[in-house]
Amino acid sequence: MVLAFYGVERSQEDIAAQMNIRPGLGAPASNIQRLQSRRLRVTYTQGEWQDLIDALAAGVPPILAVHTDQLPYWHELAQHAVVLAGLDGETATVYDPAFSTPQQVSAGDLLLAWDAMGNSFARIEPV
């Protein structure tokens, strides 16, 4: 999703193989750093809300680890990752791979969902 945003064309199977994703289990999220290349810088760290605002201001859509029980548009309990595409006042727009269209959620709910996962997030940005 974020790679496509930067115009990097790669298949899901190719990305899954590089991240060592196991069917049904996923992979350690920190494996996303394996996507680093000469063209892309990838960081996976713990942050604060301001770090997300800063990333968006820099044109970098951060990938957030979230607990779905805090996201009103989810009905199942799971750990998940969403791409934060924008913040407009108290409303956040996220691209959730489980849904075909962007989702809007209150910034408060998103903050709770992110906090429940220890505020981990990834930045993928062009070098």
Binding site: M1, V2, L3, Q12, I15, A16, M19, I21, R22, P23, G24, L25, G26, A27, A29, I32, L35, I63, H80, A81, V82, V83, Y95, P97, A98, A122, I124
Partner: peptide, 9 residues
């Protein structure tokens, strides 16, 4: 089960 962490990337 579905896995989705690669989809976000």
């Amino acid at each position: 089960a579905a896995h989705f962490s690669s989809n976000a990337a």
